[in-house]
């Protein structure tokens, strides 16, 4: 069995008195794509933010390839580079061009050679169909284009695992596919990914494993085939039904 890239053990996260994640354990192995689904407000995004140490945690531990990552830990920038994050609202830097957005972290934080990173960035931009946009500013791009740039930006830091936090939730419907196709391409090339999404057919296509998060914990963990055709729990059935529409007459 491949090695665990991400290992979460007994994670507990509270905001003041409110528990958001309760004794949660989860592993993502090398080359695996794990998709987290669940009702709104069940802590999916918070879980990703904990993995990237954007949130402090109240219990348990999170390890990336055996090394602990924590909000108040040592070498935090270095640890965070092992975890790539793509946000719901892209969070490109509006004052920098596409290529400058991508080069910033590799050149300033990783001290890599600008030319070398640039060549890599251009190749990735070409792969997502945005080579000619390298010198554009983010505001000149559509939502789907911005999100593809954000993915390239995260990739260029060479993370061990990529986190996707509802990356199509802010997009117009016709732009969803262009972004999801990029992510499916990454899965095919064996990137290790942890994805939060509300796009069920995408989840089914991309996932090696599906996790249903509800009421601060993992309720169900299964293969996509099993999850969508024969959900084990009542909650999973109810959750899946919420995506179906039917006229009562």
């Amino acid at each position: 069995m491949p090695e665990a890239v991400l290992k979460i053990s007994h994670l507990t996260k509270r905001f003041d008195d409110q528990t958001v994640l309760d004794d949660l354990s989860l592993e993502v192995r090398e080359g695996e794509t794990v998709v987290i689904v669940g009702p709104s407000g069940c802590g999916k995004s918070t879980l990703l933010r904990c993995v990237n140490a954007l949130e402090d945690i109240q219990g348990g531990e999170i390890r990336i390839r055996g090394e602990e990552i924590r909000h108040d830990g040592k070498n935090l920038p270095e640890m965070r580079r092992k975890v790539g994050m793509v946000f719901q609202n892209y969070e490109l830097f509006p004052h920098l061009t596409v290529i400058e957005n991508i080069l910033l972290a590799p050149v300033k934080a990783q001290k890599r050679r600008r030319e070398e990173v640039r060549a890599e960035a251009m190749e990735l931009l070409e792969r997502v169909g945005l080579k000619e946009k390298a010198d554009s500013l983010p505001r000149q791009l559509s939502g789907g284009q911005k999100q593809r740039v954000a993915i390239v930006r995260a990739l260029c830091v060479h993370p061990d695992i990529l986190l996707f936090d509802e990356v199509t939730a802010a997009l117009d419907p016709e732009m969803v596919r262009e972004v999801l196709d990029v992510i499916i391409g990454l899965a095919e090339r064996g990137k290790t990914m942890l994805i939060v999404t509300h796009e069920m057919s995408f989840a089914r296509a991309v996932a090696d494993r599906i996790i249903l998060l509800s009421d601060c914990r993992i309720l169900e963990e299964s293969s996509p085939e099993e999850f969508f055709t024969a959900p084990k729990t009542e909650q999973a059935k109810k959750f899946l039904q919420s995506f179906e529409f039917r006229r009562s007459r």
Binding site: R80, G84, L92, R153
Partner: peptide, 13 residues
Amino acid sequence: SLQEESALSLGLT
């Protein structure tokens, strides 16, 4: 503040 988080998540100090 998400702009800062985005920068931090890329490994900037």
